[in-house]
Design a protein around this nucleic acid. Sequence first.
RNA 1: CGGGGCGUAGCUCAGCCUGGCAGAGCGCUUGCUUCGGGAGCAAGAGGCCGGAGGUUCGAAUCCUCUCGCCCCGACCA
Length: 478
Amino acid sequence: MSRRQIKTRAEDYSRWYQDVIAAADMAEHAPVRGCMIIKPWGYGIWERLQRELDDRFKETGHENAYFPLLVPKSLITKEEEHVEGFAPECAIVTHGGDKELEEPLYIRPTSEAIICSTYAKWINSWRDLPILINQWANVVRWEMRPRLFLRTLEFLWQEGHTAHETHDEAAEEVRRMLDVYADVAESVMAVPVIKGSKTASERFPGAIDTTCIEAMMQDGKALQAGTSHDLGQNFAKAYDIEFQGRDGEMQHAWSTSWGVSTRLIGAIIMTHGDDDGIVVPPMLAPQQAVVVPIFKGEEQAAEMCADAEAIVADLRAAGVRAKADTRDHLRPGAKFFEWEKKGVPVRVEYGARDKASGNAVIKRRDTGEKMIVPLTEVASTIAGLMTTIQAGMLAKARAWRDERTFVCDDYDDFKSRVGDGGFFHMRWCGEAACETRVKDDTKATIRCIPYEGDDDPGACTICGADATGIRPIFARAY
RNA sequence: CGGGGCGUAGCUCAGCCUGGCAGAGCGCUUGCUUCGGGAGCAAGAGGCCGGAGGUUCGAAUCCUCUCGCCCCGACCA
């Protein structure tokens, strides 16, 4: 029957993840450990995602710019916490041509250093603020355990860097961009997320507040899908971003930074994929519909392929990204499997039988549902399906997550269950000691303290001391 | 960095223990037949057996060194 190339999720989740990427032809390992070659199907998804993000950045008043890859060591080391946080994972260039450099150059692990030091030159007056800039870039972090898309040494991302006159403005920016991320995650990627703040121990090095969106993967583990940082005046002080205020006094600017990366593709895979491959949400699918003509012999091939192209033209006119798979060295079944592994939202089958009846067969990737539709209605049906599927995927993912989200008041119960995955809302006294204890006991961490929820004061589930506010989410994470 | 495993065809691997012509499946090329869920047959192409050194008449196989990768643990978008 079917020749399975993909381990099932139940057999080996981690293997499934890798198999799915290979089967969908999205990416492969590069010669350098931890580096990734992103192939057209994977990159196509990234391009769609970039566009959705970039449009929203522009709508919220940001402009794109580009800062260099190489950063002098002296600049990197200015912000103390920042250095400590990133130094262990920096790649450093020591030679230029055949000469050893006098000052080593860091390959950016993130661009606060180069951007903030530049802002210092750009900003003199309160009239120069705010500065709202984003850049699309690659960064390098020498990670120990790479995984395609989720954690690679080099990855693609965007990083927004803004500077403001007041802390209120900066804080507003931090939340505005977090909202943008949450919107893209849910309405574009169909990945439900929870917005919240990190605890001190999980904060970006140098930030006073790190906000994040957290998603739950199908194995119940959490994935940080985006972050937006309130940097306070820490970087302004380290990099001398000073301006003369409305009152004539010199003061330090308030800065923010925020980013999402190609990791989001990993989130899509682990949120929507099934044992047959990935399932790409319609808004991100490089092809939303593929028409497979079915034919016998050369004459019929020409005829059915022409008809298939006509269906594609209808689909495009209806705003659907579509193509016909007219390759003649593959039989229809092989094509069906190929596009299924790639996660194309809808497949159209069209052969002599359909031609005779004036219909086409439509198959949904997300539900597997097959329907027979009159030719004249194929384009409009599929155009409608795009929104149906998109919404269905989000609803399904949300239901999955909610089923694995628990309110827990018994630490022993938590310890015995957290290994199976899921989000656990427990009361927390706010002490780092309790976080550490949870991590030592279970490898789980506080993923975030959500913004939405009810204050629920009581006893800290871990130590029994007083706990106030919204319950944090404890979970194992990627 | 600790523990474990692996480097042989594009891919997955067998062969190694016990030294003696370089192998299989998949993929690829060509042809014919096929074509509504991963096609069949036939003929082909494809190799510095990770690298270096050693033992030997002879090394993919034995020995030494080296490089690289994968998996499991300590860091992370």
